[in-house]
Design a protein around this nucleic acid. Structure first.
Lengths: 242, 242
DNA sequence: ATGCAGAAATTGGTTGGACCATTGTACCAA
DNA sequence: TTGGTACAATGGTCCAACCAATTTCTGCAT
């Protein structure tokens, strides 16, 4: 049997993306920069605006680009021609099991990010984290409970300082899923309350450049969230709810 | 036949995807099944065919769907409404930085998977892992070096036994990227050689139901890979070869 | 000059219709 | 049965508008 060539029919929109990637490199566009309007691209590349839009839609779906109506299309991530896209998609429901699964992933990544953070944080980065921590602590005392926004800011700062953009990419995607619960604390009063003290201990280990200590504290933090989650699941089951 | 309500507002293509996800679930479509034609969807949803196409283009970019001109659009993966899309993008895996980033992610996940594995592995699962381990060890002695295939089988077994499908999905996607290196060990003789003994120690900690021990051994294993990677990078730089 | 409300231009989002290229199917002839 | 052909269905591309959000410019009042 022959191994016939892959042979592909029409692929204009794909060609558009290649040319566009070249353009981005040539112009040295960085994230946040605006790229040419759809109409300009359409004319320059001698293809219809529809085709340009299909191509950009692909990039948008991959999170490479952000469209703002009335304003333009902006680069959201570094783009190069030889880039690898790994669109992971997995079914994940509102059920306890799925949520626990995402939490387990987060535990692994959170621990690693904290450890790397301890190794790499410079004075400026450390100050940033400290600031996020205090903002969160203030919000905690003001509202007498965890504030998911400020809490999230703190964690994101750690992901960023870790020096590895993949942490933020992966965990952000999962956070979106997790967030639904934060809004509906499923019967657990003060959900996340127990995690509060560990934010500071994590910061302290990072400040001390103690990678293993930071990892350990991060694990403890997630453990408290896991406990809350289990408690919430028990509540639901006891209530016969779903 | 169909139960597709019309829709409005300016989030159409997104709304189309939601409705379409509902439809897929309602009709219980499995991968390989054909979904309604663009023209039918356009009419049923009361939106233009262009909008339908933009929506499907998103799904295609995410690998959820495959389009065949003249034939139709086919489901390529399981789809549900609450699905997590995680489009990871990073520059070509041939540079040291990107590879190190993926390795850091893998370290976090590998450690967590091993720990969970120690908690959850039953006799049958343990036996499976032991078998993969011995196969790998045999291959190692036969070829006097690490065999990437058998090594990978061992790790995959751990991901599976961890009881969380996300581990395998995420790491598998990254492994594809990492694999290029395994084939071209960039000047490091016996790349991965140092990781060999830790496979057994990981297994032993799992068998002993020692979660923290398993986590610790997994970290050591990745550390050896990281060392090899740094060595390879140094080699390349010394050779002036990018 | 300055500040600001409103008009105008810009830009992405949507629509409808048209045509092309590929594929699948039904039918017919050898 | 085999092979080919016409035809219909389907995704791919194109065009020319119009809509909606945003930005920029304009001109008036201060």
């Amino acid at each position: 049997m022959f191994d016939l060539p892959p042979l592909q029919a029409t692929a204009r929109d794909d060609a558009v993306l290649n040319v566009l990637a070249d353009f981005v490199m040539q112009e040295d566009l960085k994230p946040g920069d605006r790229l040419p309007t759809e109409r300009v691209l359409s004319e320059r590349l001698k293809v219809s605006r529809t085709t340009v839009r299909e191509a950009l839609t692909r990039w948008e779906g991959l999170g490479l680009v952000e469209r703002r109506q009335g304003s333009g299309t902006y680069l959201k991530a570094a783009v190069s021609r030889d880039m690898l896209h790994l669109p992971l998609t997995f079914a994940s429901g509102n059920d306890f099991g799925s949520l626990m699964h995402t939490l387990e992933i987060r535990r692994g990544l959170e621990a690693e990010a904290a450890a790397l953070c301890a190794l790499r944080a410079g004075p400026a980065e450390l100050e940033l984290i400290r600031q996020k921590l205090e903002t969160m602590e203030e919000a905690f005392h003001a509202r007498a409970g965890m504030s998911s926004d400020e809490d999230w800011d703190f964690h994101q700062a750690i992901y960023r300082v870790s020096g590895n953009p993949l942490f933020e990419q992966i965990i952000s995607a999962m956070h979106e899923l997790f967030h639904r619960f934060w809004e509906h604390p499923l019967g657990v009063r003060d959900f996340g309350h127990a995690s509060f003290p560990y934010h500071r201990t994590i910061y302290e280990r990072i400040a001390a450049r103690d990678a293993e200590g930071a990892r350990s504290e991060a694990l403890k933090l997630i453990a408290t969230v896991e406990a809350d989650l289990r408690r919430g699941d028990a509540n639901l089951k006891r209530a016969g709810n779903r």
